[in-house]
């Protein structure tokens, strides 16, 4: 056992050792137009340790290493702050660097649309999308609401009587996924009462009845549903999800509300990354996504497979952005 630990420490230090300082934007595209990384690849998690971005980045780097899909070392660094803006600015400064990338999800759209980052997804080079996660709307087990339509009917009758809580600030993910579904159900999006709790009190506030609805990711609800503390009125996925508890969650679409929301998670390179490098990473990410080892990772965290190559990813993002921007405009939060 001791040996494993020591080996662990060694490998961690080796990773970081090789990882420090890679400022020169070495572009190693060979003369034949093929790209091979020639030094440690730096993966930026624009958040602190332990969150969704950090976990995704670390698991991807780990599986890349263990399966030897990419031989070169990958090291994850955390650049926390501004809801991601500091990390994005950091990667943006590495223009053309083919050994640098970062992990992203919808906040890469929400934050710039809220006017809190100079950089949005269009400022970077999309490499590949890897996974999809979905939103869930949960209420306390003994709540009078039995499904989304109950909830939305109540909100149409008396919008002041329902409070929604989430972790992110208004205009960001937990808020907007709710607004998007509620609007499709005919609720006036400007009348939705939303409070944000970033200190970990959101679930608490639902459990003790201070607020009515918890807007969050499906993963956050599973354990509480199993324990019979809360019930999930609906999820934002297009189709029923698979899994022991997940398959019991009805989608909004099933309940006659024609709207969905994907919490996509993928990887982006700095602006101006060489096409050869983009092709290289695209292929490697695809291989990773199809590997058994990464399937295990997805299962462990309850993530869904959603691979998209660079071009498809770009188009998808454009469509998403338009829709979100229009919605933010409508509730007066667009900048």
């Amino acid at each position: 056992m001791k040996k494993t630990i020591f080996a662990g420490i060694l490998s961690v230090s080796a990773l970081t050792f090789a990882g420090c300082g890679s400022d020169d934007a070495a572009n190693t595209a060979g003369e034949d137009g093929n790209f091979e990384p020639s030094k440690t690849i730096e993966v930026v998690a624009p958040a602190g340790s332990g969150g969704g971005w950090d976990t995704t980045a670390r698991e991807v780097a780990r599986v890349f290493g263990e399966t030897e899909i990419i031989d070169e070392n990958m090291t994850v660094i955390n650049r926390e702050g501004g809801g991601g803006a500091i990390g994005w600015a950091y990667v943006h400064g590495k223009e053309g660097d083919a050994h640098s990338m970062f992990v992203a999800s919808p906040p890469l759209m929400f934050v710039p649309l809220n006017g809190q980052s100079e950089h949005g997804h269009e400022d970077f080079t999309p490499l590949a999308n890897m996974i999809a996660d979905y939103g869930a709307f949960a209420v306390r087990e003994d709540s009078e609401f039995e499904d989304l339509n109950d909830l939305f009917d109540q909100m149409k009758d008396d919008p002041e009587s329902v409070t929604v809580i989430g972790t992110s600030a208004p205009g960001s993910m937990d808020h907007m996924q709710f607004v998007r579904i509620a609007k499709a159900a005919g609720v006036d999006p400007t009348k939705i009462k939303y409070v944000s709790d970033q200190e970990g009190g959101a679930l608490t506030a639902v459990l003790n009845g201070s607020v009515d609805v918890f807007s969050t990711g499906v993963g956050e609800t599973i354990e509480q549903v199993r324990a019979g503390n809360i019930k999930v009125l609906g999820v934002t996925a297009e189709e029923r999800m698979e899994g022991e508890v997940l398959s019991e969650f009805p989608t909004a679409i099933e309940q006659g509300i024609d709207e969905s929301f994907v919490n996509w998670r993928g990887f982006f390179g700095p602006p101006g990354m060489d096409q050869a490098a983009v092709d290289y990473y695209e292929a490697k990410f695809q291989e990773l996504s199809e590997s058994e080892e990464f399937a295990e990772v997805r299962e462990k965290y309850g993530w869904n497979e959603m691979y998209m190559g660079s071009e498809e990813y770009s188009e998808f993002l454009e469509g998403e952005k338009e829709e979100i921007a229009a919605l933010l405009e409508e509730i007066g939060l667009g900048q």
Binding site: S13, T16, F17, G19, C20, G21
Partner: peptide
């Protein structure tokens, strides 16, 4: 850098 894996410049 080597024991804790925290990168210093």
């Amino acid at each position: 850098v080597f024991a804790l894996g925290i990168v210093l410049p």
